[in-house]
C-alpha cells in the first residue's frame, strides 16, 4: 500500500488538529476536498468518467459486452470490476505492488453492487440462459492523494450514469435460433438506471474523532477506518472495517450515523452535477428521476 512517510511530530500535529476540528488543509472533520468530475471522455468505451478529489486522480471506463448468464442467475447480467494501479501514481505499484489496494477497492465495489436494490441486474438480461450484458468497469488509479475508495465509487457511479448500452433487437432466425441485431446508429442506446447506485464513504478514526476524505498524510495517522456504501436514500449497502486497528462499539455507531449523513449530501451534489454534465436536466424531470 502506498503510504506517505511522516515523522512522529508531524503525526501529532495532524492528530491534534483533528481533535480541534481543524485539519491541515483548513477543512473540518466532515468536509470533503474539492471534487472535479468529468464524464464521457473516452470515446472507445460505452461510458467513462474521470475524477480528481484533492490530489487523487482516477479514470473509470465502462465496456459492455454480451456474455452467457451464470447458471444460477439465468436471466440476469452482471457487473465486473477491475482495479488497476498505475505505476505512475506511486513507485510501489510496480509489478504486483498495488494488488492489496486494488483488491480492497475491487471487493468493496463488488460487495455493494451485487444487490438488486442497487442495480436492476435483470435489465441486463437479453435472452434467458443464452445471452446477457456483462458490464466491465475498469478503474485506473492515476494519482494517489488519499481516500481512493470514495473517489473510485463516485467515478464508477458517474461512469455508469454515462454508460449507454446498445439497443439491440431480436429477430427469429433459422431453426428456432434467435438473432441479435445491433442498431446501426451508435447513438441508439439505453441508459442504465443508476439512481440507486451507492457511493462509498470512508470514515477514518483519528484520535477519538473520525474524519471523512482523509488525505494520504491523514491516512498515516489512522489505524482503523470504516468504509460504508450509502445510497441516495441513506440506506447502507455493505460495510467493512479496514486497517489493523480497533474501534469502540459507540464510535462505530457514531461513524455509521455520520456516514449516512455525508453519503446523502454527496449524492445530492453528485446527482446535480451528473445532470448538468449530461446536459439534459429537463428530460430527467419528465421521466421522474428526481
Amino acid at each position: 500500500m502506498a503510504k506517505a512517510i511522516l515523522g512522529d511530530s508531524e503525526k501529532w500535529f495532524i492528530v491534534h488538529g483533528v481533535q480541534d476540528d481543524f485539519r491541515t488543509d483548513g477543512r473540518s472533520c466532515e468536509n470533503y476536498r474539492h471534487i472535479e468530475l468529468e464524464t464521457g471522455i473516452l470515446s472507445n468505451t460505452h461510458g467513462s468518467a474521470r475524477i480528481r478529489l484533492g490530489s487523487s486522480e482516477l479514470l473509470v471506463g465502462v465496456k459492455v459486452e454480451l456474455g452467457t448468464p451464470k447458471p444460477q442467475r439465468i436471466n440476469e447480467g452482471w457487473l465486473e470490476f477491475h482495479v488497476d494501479c498505475s505505476p505512475n501514481a506511486h513507485p510501489v505499484f510496480q509489478g504486483r505492488g498495488g494488488k492489496e489496494l486494488s483488491d480492497n477497492i475491487c471487493s468493496m465495489l463488488t460487495r455493494v453492487y451485487r444487490n438488486n436494490t442497487v442495480m436492476d441486474l435483470e435489465a441486463l438480461g437479453v435472452i434467458p440462459q443464452k445471452h446477457c450484458w456483462v458490464v466491465h468497469v475498469d478503474v485506473l488509479i492515476l494519482e494517489c492523494g488519499g481516500n481512493l475508495i470514495d473517489a473510485a465509487s463516485i467515478a464508477v457511479k458517474a461512469a455508469l450514469y454515462n454508460t449507454g448500452i446498445p439497443n439491440i433487437s431480436l429477430t427469429d432466425g433459422d431453426e428456432g435460433e434467435v438473432e441479435i441485431n445491433l442498431p446501426d446508429d451508435p447513438e441508439d442506446v439505453k441508459h442504465l438506471k443508476t439512481i440507486n447506485c451507492p457511493v462509498l464513504v470512508t470514515l477514518s478514526k483519528i484520535g477519538n474523532r473520525h474524519i471523512v476524505d482523509a488525505t494520504d498524510e491523514e491516512e498515516c495517522c489512522c489505524s482503523a477506518s470504516l468504509v460504508m456504501g450509502v445510497t441516495r436514500r441513506g440506506h447502507t449497502v455493505g460495510v467493512r472495517k479496514m486497517g489493523g486497528g480497533s474501534l469502540d462499539p459507540e464510535s462505530v455507531t457514531e461513524m455509521i450515523d455520520s456516514g449516512k449523513k455525508i453519503g446523502r449530501q454527496l449524492h445530492i451534489s453528485l446527482d446535480k452535477l451528473l445532470k448538468i454534465e449530461a446536459g439534459m436536466s429537463e428530460d430527467i424531470k419528465q421521466t421522474g428521476y428526481l
Binding site: N115, T231, G234, T236, V239, R240, L247
Partner: peptide, 12 residues
C-alpha cells in the same frame, strides 16, 4: 470492535 463486515441494503 476489530472487524465489521456487512452485505445487503438496510437502514442505518
Amino acid at each position: 470492535v476489530c472487524g465489521v463486515l456487512s452485505e445487503g441494503c438496510m437502514e442505518s
